[in-house]
């Protein structure tokens, strides 16, 4: 199973409560550019919420140091001790959910902690679970296919 932050754009009113909660929790400042969830205005009162779906795992596949790993709950997390800040993960993310704040040494992403959920007045976001998909297994299968047989 994969734990993830489920978003519903239709319910979002753009109040930015989630963004504030996130950046305050992780970066100790209220700064939208440092939030793991992003709110994009679409005009005409419409908003698009961006947070990692934890499922495609292209970043896990791309990371040269295996700093991006999948936790027991299926969440993609960054091991900062291994990250060399190359930003390949930022480039391959198809929805721009892997974020670098210019000048920071390492990127960040949503880890489905749910801190923002509690602050949302419109129930536009929720912690949910979903099944693994074929896409989420590609990286693991690629590794299994090339591993050397264990030394005797």
């Amino acid at each position: 199973m994969i734990k993830y932050l489920k978003t519903n754009d239709e319910k979002c009113v753009g109040c930015m409560s989630c963004v504030s909660a996130c950046s305050l929790l992780y970066e100790k400042e209220d700064n939208p550019a440092k939030s793991r969830i992003q709110v994009n205005g679409q005009g005409r009162g419409a908003f698009h919420l961006i947070a990692c779906d934890q499922e495609c795992r292209k970043c896990v596949q791309e990371c040269p140091t295996q700093a991006l790993v999948v936790s027991k709950t299926g969440v993609v997390v960054l091991d900062k001790s291994l990250c060399v800040g190359c930003l390949a993960c930022v480039a391959v993310c198809p929805i721009d959910a892997m974020i670098i704040f210019p000048g920071d040494k390492q990127p960040f992403k949503c880890i489905a902690c749910g801190a923002c959920v509690k602050k949302c007045p419109k129930e536009a976001i929720a912690i949910a679970e979903k099944e693994e998909s074929p896409a989420s297994r590609v990286w693991a299968e690629a590794i299994a296919a090339v591993r050397k047989e264990e030394a005797k």
């Binding site: 190359c86 390949a88 990286w139 690629a142 296919a145």
Partner: peptide, 14 residues
């Protein structure tokens, strides 16, 4: 060739 691996010869070569 093995696919779906980040086969750079140095970190950060996509």
């Amino acid at each position: 060739l093995s696919q779906n691996l980040p086969d750079g010869c140095w970190y950060g070569c996509t």
